[in-house]
């Protein structure tokens, strides 16, 4: 199973692309995804926060990930 992860704001700047594909075996949960992304891109660990969205909703660390999911890293938001 591979995963595509959309990147926005400072996470796109850090990774250098707006979508990253994680080849199989991809992380199985949100927590594993975050750990893997921080391992590959240590600057992600310096952010105030970094959430993961699955299908347009904030996801808990133990949530499972599937190839069909729309997954995104969500750095600290600053609307308004």
């Amino acid at each position: 199973m591979s995963l595509k992860v959309a990147l926005f704001g400072i996470t796109r700047d850090i990774v250098g692309t707006s979508v990253i594909e994680l080849p199989a075996p991809a992380p199985a949960t949100v927590g594993e995804l975050l750990a893997e992304m921080r391992r590959q891109y240590p600057a992600l660990g310096e952010l105030r926060s970094c959430a993961v969205a699955v299908n347009n909703e904030y996801a808990a660390l133990d949530q499972s990930l599937h190839t069909v999911d729309e997954i995104a890293l969500i750095p600290p938001v600053a609307g308004g």
Partner: peptide
Amino acid sequence: IIDTLKQVVTIWKREEYEDGTEWVAAHP
């Protein structure tokens, strides 16, 4: 609504200064 929007809505702001830019609230 505006207070909660600022906390949860996925919009990001990059400030542009004379000498560069910075993503707002990104770092502690």
